[in-house]
Every structure is written in C-alpha cells, then in structure tokens.
Write a protein that binds this DNA or RNA. Structure first.
Lengths: 118, 118
DNA sequence: CCAATTGTTCAATAACTTTTGAACTAAGGA
DNA sequence: TCCTTAGTTCAAAAGTTATTGAACAATTGG
C-alpha cells in the first residue's frame, strides 16, 4: 500500500508554485517545516479544514512532489520532500518557508500533541 | 493615467505564488528577468498568447505586485518589481527565476526587436 | 468478532480562472 | 482630421479548483 509520488526530476515548477499558492497548503508546508522533518499524520492539520478537505489538499501536495506520505497502519505519515525540492529548485523552499514564517494572514495549526495509533 | 499597484508591504505570498503558478505568467517573468530591468511593452509577449489574453495575465502580475506597468504614450512599459519582491520575500524571485531558467516545458518568447511608438 | 480510528472516494455544488471575439479608448503620425 | 497602433473592457463560454456530506475501506485494540 504505497501511494504514488513523482520522481524528483518529474517535479514541475509551475505545478509546485500553483500548489503553494493556496493559504491552506502553505500553512501545511509551514507547519511541516516547523516540525523539522518529524512526520505528521493528517489529523494533526484538522485546524486547517475538514478531514475530507485536508485529504484533498494533502493529495495535491503529494502529487506535486512537495510532500511524501508513507502508510503506517491506518495513518499516513507526512513529511516535506526537502532534499528533493532543494535538489530540483535550489533555495526555493527555504525562501517560501522564510516568507511564510512571519505572515499573520496565513492560517495556522494549533499544535496539539496527538497519540498516533499504529 | 497611472495604473493601480500594491505597495510593497501589501504583496501577499500566496497570491504571488498562485500568480507564478501559471506557465504563461512564469514565462513572462522569466523573459522580463532575462532583459535585466529593461522595460518591455505588452506586444513583446505576443508569442505567449493573444493580445487580450496577455492583457489579462499582465494585469494579474501587476495586481499581485510582481510587475510594474508605466504608461508611456499608448504603451505600457513593464518591469519586474525585483527590489520590492526581494525586500518582501528575500531570495524567492531569484530561486524562481533560476528554477524557470532551464525548464524546457515552459513556453518561451521569441525575442523580436520591436520599435516602440511613444 | 466488534467497535473505534484514520483516512479515502464519490458525486454534487459553488466558486474561481482562463480564453475568446467584438467593441472600445487614448495617443501619435501623416 | 483621419488612420494606425497599443492596449483595455466586457460578456460569454469553457475549464478547473475547492468544499461538503455520505458512504466506504483498512487497520487496530478490546
């Protein structure tokens, strides 16, 4: 049960930019970045939208090559594809995250501690 | 006859990313960047679409704060708002332009020399 | 086995974006 | 003044994206 991800060389600049041009998805990426590589499951983003809606946005991020989702039990553990994005578009992710870092107009995740059932 | 532009501090990250997430607009930005600050008029982008369609895309770029348009006679001279974007989102524009620089999937402008009627 | 948890899929709808042609404005040159 | 050039605006059509709720699948714990 592995989910489809583009290879690094298949990641497209306009698609990545388009995907990041949505406040909810930008907030997801910012929160993932703030967690420094620690994988998160979907439920930890529920502040940003309904379960169905997050499933949609997380699929967009994964299909664009921005995130990786690994199936662990009933959870999908999500990480940023930092190294892959840096290799393909040097500096892009860092500048986006830095720019998003201090934007009060973006939605934010509360940051509850959640036990993962795996 | 000046056109509306956002102030530097009004430029929004998700809006800029969304606007750049379109191959035509990314090609416009890339071509402007390749011209190193030399202003271009709309007609010089006609390789990328119809006159009406370019008017639409150039308005999007201007309203997002990515470009500046100055009215000179019947022309709109268009430049990248490099300094403003660098001030607001350091490194972002450079990494986008670098990433777009070698993308054969993006449309391109021929680069005809055109006399400007002003 | 049963119930709870995690997340997906589907269909519907609403909202937005892109593209087009026709009509228009405004300035410049003959 | 009349014609051309440069670009906008408008309304329509087409296409895409976001959001929702109901139903579903898969796994885990009791």
């Amino acid at each position: 049960m592995t989910l489809p991800h583009p290879n690094t060389d298949q990641i497209s600049l306009p698609i990545v930019l388009g995907v990041l041009g949505d406040p909810t998805r930008l907030a997801i990426v910012r929160y993932l970045a703030s967690k420094q590589g620690v994988p998160l499951n979907c439920s930890q983003f529920l502040d940003l939208g309904s379960k169905t809606n997050l499933s949609y946005h997380l699929a967009k991020l994964r299909e664009a090559g921005v995130t990786r989702a690994e199936v662990v039990g009933t959870n999908r553990m999500i990480t940023l594809r930092r190294a892959d994005l840096d290799a393909r578009f040097p500096g892009l992710l860092d500048s986006v995250i830095a720019a998003a870092g201090d934007d009060p107009a973006l939605p934010a995740v509360g940051g509850h501690d959640i036990e993962i059932h795996a």
